[in-house]
Amino acid sequence: MKILLVDDEEELVSTLAERLSLREIDADWVTTGEDALKRVDTENYDLAVLDVKIPKISGIEIKKKLAVKCPDMKFIFMTGHGSEDNFKAGSAEAGPEYYLPKPVSIKTLIKKINDVLRK
């Protein structure tokens, strides 16, 4: 299993990647949508974890572009949206089962990764 983490908060994705690797999940990270799109040209990933709000290209837009380049790739969204309404709005676009509010526990994230990859 190989995961790509995409979030403009470098310290968040780098630490998350380290924690996943300690659990024997191979995870790379990038901080921009452009880098995510470049990275999939040279690496194969089973799943991408995307922040919804990323400068320049939103997580939803990145997902659309990645899905064209990598048709088998699965996606999970993370968001710092605080309100229930924003959460629902985001869920409607991404699918509620693929949407995690920050901060997320590592157990919840891994369970979600496994659930999504099993589908």
Binding site: E9, E11, R19, H81, K102, P103, S105
Partner: peptide, 9 residues
């Protein structure tokens, strides 16, 4: 929320 997420990790 972002700060909390980093501190959480």
């Amino acid at each position: 929320k972002n700060v909390l997420a980093i501190m959480n990790e």
